Amino acid sequence: MLRIVHGLAFGMVTVAGNTIVIDITPSSRRGEAVGYYGLMNNTAMSIGPMVGLFMHEACSFNTIFICSLTSGVLGFIMACLVRTPAKQPVESEPISFDRFILLKGIPAGISLLLLSIPYGMTTTYVAMYAEKIGITLSSGLFFTFMAFGMAVSRLFSGKQVDKGRITQIIILGLYLVCFCFFSLSLCGTLMKWNPEFTTVLFFVIALLLGVGFGTMFPAFNSLFVSLAPNSKRGTATSTYLTSWDVGIGIGLMSGGYIAQITSFDTAYFFGALLTVISALFFKLKVTPHFERNKMR
């Protein structure tokens, strides 16, 4: 029940936060602004597991949750300090499916959903995978490198989006992520051949995953917003985040199930195949659909 409340809270905060950033930013710098805003969110999603894993080795769960509560309270205080310009009330529209899901964004949502499944596997099971194959260094370092990769990529990807290179940035990120997940699925085999090389490769993969996902996040967000009229920016952002969250949920369930009946290597290989399908679908279907329907 608490987890359901968490989901409701995060769902409201992420949709509203993204929409506020889009509303208050000049259109010429929207990609850059979304990139910086997303950087904070995704960096937190990397730092959280990293710190949690480090604390788990030295602290009790009570201490970890008290620190989480403290962080949440500080976030609440910061949120109370946010001020935005007053907006004119929007006239109510007839109830329709398009008010909840951006129909023109469904193809991009499918591609994003396929991409987020292996991401969900990684954030949940990579520590167990590292322990299983014999990597002795703390798994928290994986998320450290991943967060660093995201931070570096966000410094340039948002500006490229503002120059109109939305689909090109996403395709580049998809290729990089495909390579990373195939390499991750091979780590169990490579560990038997050369443990030192595999350990280095494991953390290089984390860095490149951060670069790949950090490159794509602001571009995907801008893609959804570009498909919607100004009155449906919130719907566009909601569709973007819903696709991502649903994929992560599927990754949590499917990753554990596949690993239980086979191995983590197989689970990550399955995730790598999904990234290939996502890349092909995006290039062949989503890109031409976006070029035909974009509104700005």
Rank of each mutant, 00 (worst) to 15 (best):
S92Y: 10
I95A: 13
F97R: 05
D98F: 07
R99D: 11
K104V: 04
K104D: 12
K104G: 11
A108N: 04
A108V: 03
G109A: 12
I110E: 02
L112A: 15
L113V: 00
L115I: 03
I117M: 12
I117L: 11
P118N: 10
Y119A: 14
G120R: 08
M121E: 05
M121D: 03
T122D: 09
T122M: 12
T123S: 13
T123K: 06
T123Y: 14
T124V: 15
M128W: 07
A130S: 14
E131R: 10
E131N: 06
K132L: 10
K132D: 14
G134R: 07
G134A: 12
I135G: 01
T136S: 15
T136V: 14
S139W: 04
F142L: 14
F143A: 06
T144V: 14
M146N: 14
F148C: 13
F148H: 07
M150D: 03
V152E: 08
S153D: 07
F156P: 00
F156W: 03
F156D: 00
Q160W: 10
V161S: 01
R165N: 09
T167P: 00
Q168H: 12
I170P: 01
I171L: 12
Y175W: 13
V177Q: 11
L184V: 08
S185K: 01
L186Q: 09
L186M: 09
C187I: 09
G188W: 05
G188N: 11
T189K: 14
K192Y: 08
W193D: 09
N194R: 04
L201P: 01
F202A: 09
F203K: 02
V204I: 15
V204D: 05
I205R: 03
L207Y: 13
